[in-house]
Design a protein around this nucleic acid. Structure first.
Lengths: 337, 337
DNA sequence: CATCGGTCTGAAAACGATTACATTGCGGCG
DNA sequence: CGCCGCAATGTAATCGTTTTCAGACCGATG
């Protein structure tokens, strides 16, 4: 069937041991032999059988990624970041999404046993986070964007709280006083932190203002619905802060349809900085989250974890950056139209 | 360290062969023994070593997915579709993206050897498609959205040509005569087929009209740039058909900025039907491509392939569907504004 | 010239499962 | 009562690597 190390050995007139050494770059092989082996190997299109290799070497060269059912930009960016670091180190990615319920997540985690050298787990639904520990062996694991109450694992996340605070500060500084918030899924850790940031910053900056919330679910459609609700609200808000860009866009389009101008009639801001944010008209003020970087750093954390030096980097937060664009500032004059 | 089948055998006072048979549900094991083995196995927290198992059984219960560096919605939807089918069948997903160049793709393919039972490969760049065959053993493989000149593999794709034809037909029917096209990457198979559909349909429906092309790259930014170019074109187009929705949106925002109204001044259409398409104002006329379904069906094809019945399903095209929304039709009266 | 100390190579033992083949035990039949 | 056949179990080969250990070779040294 496929060509094995024995075939290479035969063709190069050496033993399998020598082939193995030559290909794995051990230093006790003559240059001449090493070259010949490499030639033969490429000529025969030899590539080592993974299962056999990891059986004898106890390493799989694979890291597992267990994610919830993510959509769009977030998922692809995260994977890109992880993939980049993984391939830098010659690692493969075994991916499994779970669709909502904790049992599926548990099953996915258990199925990873023995197949991977380490695990990247994202469990943004706060109720699911707890069960992670039980379903893991003692595998090296990094948690992504997950509230790890027990503190059992190294964790990497976005500073959602800080980002939301920065946004509220900006909106208040820009002169807005009635700032509404379109919240994300109730049990989502990111969404909760952003909401907390909004609440606390608002209380600090505008002690008299009451927080004004509309529930959303991170989807564009829910932002659209929220936008319509806000238009009929009693004191009309003069600014809307959506917990993510998708909802902000949905909201923007709802305003468009109603003939409400942004930012003249009402300011708008989002969170994430998806590629569309800068292109939409008006360009969306938002908080930039470098998702690919999040994935990449998580992968790197996992790798250093294997090296034994756990170091002090248990809980890390990636600081997002406030990006001010047109949607939140009442510019003195309008661009040519 | 970890408990092996031998430990279980010893503890249950049977041979390893019997343990293997009992746990894998073979029928030639006494009920009594089977029960005892299962008890012992769970008591010891035994879980079979994956590498060992797949070395001897020649099956990995994993399918490989080799994709180009995809973005956004497309990647995540495709993965969702594949993942769904995979988990239905208890399979795992080994994912690898290659970032553009063919060598990386080749490496990714070779690295899959011995790690997967089958392969899903997407190679939309036409120059890369040819090399796929060489870097594959005789692994069951399904090609996605790839021009397989040799016809060596079963292939699944989108009927990009048909979709583009349907769109041009629609635009002509709606009364447009100067229909410009924003093309995708030159060497991209999808983009080429859409362009071909545009060209041929235009020649058929408006024999006198000359095709008017602007080069894009499927990114929002290139659509934006293309939109600006089109605004300065000599006879102004009365309709713009972008090879994908992202470019259509970029174009739309360029028009917005210039004060050009869609569809009154100029009609606009895209391709893909990304979630945003229905939310943007005006809602975007487009061709609906069910990407998750594409992934799911590809995975299913791969599975039936393993069953030996190759059947006649070598080349399949998924028919996309024309979705007419506001951006392409000059409605008699405008909605409240 | 025999011995030592390297370096390079080969033979063979893991690794942990599956499975072909051999063995055992037992009931039924002649 | 002895033998046959079948079902249950055990023994050992196998999968393709890595790695340990031992051996071969060669130049230098006493």
């Amino acid at each position: 069937m496929s060509v094995t190390i024995k075939d290479v050995a035969r063709a190069a007139k050496v033993s399998v041991a020598t082939v193995s050494r030559a290909l794995n770059g051990h230093d006790n092989v003559t240059e001449k032999v090493r070259v010949r082996v490499h030639e033969v190997a490429t000529r025969l299109h030899y590539s080592p059988h993974h299962a056999a290799r990891s059986l004898s070497s106890r390493r799989t060269h694979t890291i597992g990624v267990v994610l919830p059912d993510l959509h769009g930009e977030f998922f692809s960016e995260l994977m890109r970041g992880i993939d980049l670091v993984a391939r830098e180190h010659g690692l493969h990615l075994l991916v499994s999404s779970y669709h909502g319920n904790p049992e599926e997540q548990a099953a996915a985690l258990r199925a990873m046993r023995g197949r991977v050298d380490g695990l990247l787990v994202m469990a943004p639904h706060v109720d699911h986070a707890g069960s992670v520990a039980q379903n893991l062996g003692s595998m090296p694991t990094v948690l992504l964007d997950t509230r790890d109450a027990a503190g059992a694992f190294p964790t990497l996340g976005i500073d959602n709280y800080g980002g939301a605070v920065a946004m509220v500060d900006h909106l208040v500084d820009a002169g807005h006083r009635q700032i509404a918030f379109i919240a994300g899924p109730e049990q989502n850790f990111d969404a909760m932190e952003r909401l907390r940031g909004y609440r606390e910053a608002l209380a600090r900056r505008l002690p008299r203002a009451k927080p004004r919330l509309v529930q959303g679910d991170f989807g564009e459609a829910s932002g659209h619905a929220a936008g319509r609700v806000l238009l009929t609200a009693k004191p009309k808000p003069d600014a809307v802060f959506a917990a993510n860009d998708m909802m902000a866009l949905g909201c923007l389009f709802a305003f468009n349809q109603a003939g409400i101008r942004v930012p003249q009639d009402i300011a708008l801001a989002g969170f994430d900085d998806i590629p569309l944010a800068r292109l939409v008209v008006p360009a969306l003020t938002t908080v930039q989250v470098r998702i690919a970087e999040l994935g990449g750093r998580a992968a790197r954390m996992l790798l250093t974890l294997g090296d034994g030096k756990q170091s002090a980097t248990r809980r890390n937060l990636l600081a997002p950056q406030l990006i001010v664009r047109d949607s939140s500032v009442r510019t003195p004059r309008k661009r040519a139209r």
